[in-house]
Simulated assay, not measured.
Amino acid sequence: MDIPLLVRDFGSDIAAGGLSMMIVALYYLWLGRQVRRDPTFTIHGVNKLARTLWVLHVMRHPAKDVMAVQTLRNFIMGASLMASTATLLIIGTLTLSGQAESISRTWHVLNVGGAHAAELWIIKVICLLVDFIVAFFAFVMAVRLVNHVVFMINTPEPDAHHNLAPEAVARRLNRAGNLFAIGMRAFFFAVPLMFWLFGPAFLVVATIGLVLTLQRLDRSEPAPD
């Protein structure tokens, strides 16, 4: 493939994609630095702590087993709904890929400075498809792990195996929570990818808007003075 020709034809989209990835990377570098200073800086850290304390409390008080099963059932239902939503979005994205030639002409009406080639449209749709597939597998894996926790959390003899200890069960539940968060994050990142279908400028603007939104959503409430 002729690299200079590729840069000439798709340079603006390549630059917009690189800039968007850099913006996201800088945000997560900043977020990781804050989390290293304070593990509960983000709402995810607070949720991790809450899940850990919840598992320890439930396993130390067997009378809470019904409440535990109901809570985990609600988690499974939510993750299953999100996995089903991801499946529908995957089907819709595949439908878009089959209409590249006709849709690309109309969707690129507002595309200023970007390429209008059908090949580029397919690449954009593939990126969107991969994003939804990641979301699907994240939610499905979250359901799988919580199904394990449903039985582990009611184990009458947690000392029978080290993986049945309350701390180990809490780690498994936290992995499920992290996967659920990854699935939701994949849905969030689908927004700039969708705007990319209209042109590279829309991708950059949508990425900046998403990062500003995540900066507010990710941070936990500071302690009162």
Rank of each mutant, 00 (worst) to 15 (best):
M1C: 04
P4K: 05
P4D: 05
V7I: 04
R8L: 10
F10L: 13
F10E: 11
S12D: 08
A15P: 02
A16G: 05
A16E: 06
I23C: 03
A25T: 07
Y27A: 00
Y27F: 08
Y27S: 01
Y28H: 06
Y28F: 12
G32Q: 07
G32F: 10
R36P: 01
R36N: 05
R37P: 06
P39R: 10
T40G: 07
I43K: 15
G45F: 06
G45M: 03
G45Y: 10
V46Q: 08
W54T: 08
W54F: 04
H57A: 14
V58M: 02
M59D: 03
P62K: 03
K64C: 11
Q70E: 15
T71E: 14
M82K: 10
S84K: 11
G92H: 10
L96T: 04
S97L: 14
S97Q: 14
E101D: 09
I103A: 15
R105N: 10
W107D: 13
H108W: 13
N111M: 02
H116Y: 08
L120Y: 15
W121G: 01
L128S: 06
L129E: 08
D131H: 09
I133K: 01
A135I: 10
A135G: 07
M141N: 13
R144L: 11
L145N: 05
V146K: 07
N147Y: 11
F151W: 13
M152W: 15
I153H: 09
N154E: 00
E157H: 15
E157Q: 13
D159C: 02
D159Q: 05
A160E: 09
H162T: 02
N163T: 14
N163R: 15
N163I: 11
L164G: 02
L164Y: 10
A165H: 09
A165W: 07
P166V: 07
A168Y: 06
A168S: 10
R172F: 07
L173Y: 01
R175C: 09
A176I: 00
G177V: 01
L179W: 03
L179C: 03
F180D: 14
A181C: 10
M184Q: 09
M184K: 07
R185P: 01
R185T: 11
A186L: 00
F188W: 12
V191I: 12
V191M: 06
M194V: 15
F195D: 00
W196F: 14
W196D: 05
P200F: 14
A201T: 12
L203D: 01
V204P: 00
A206K: 00
L210T: 01
L212C: 04
L212T: 05
T213G: 09
T213R: 03
S220E: 04
D225N: 12
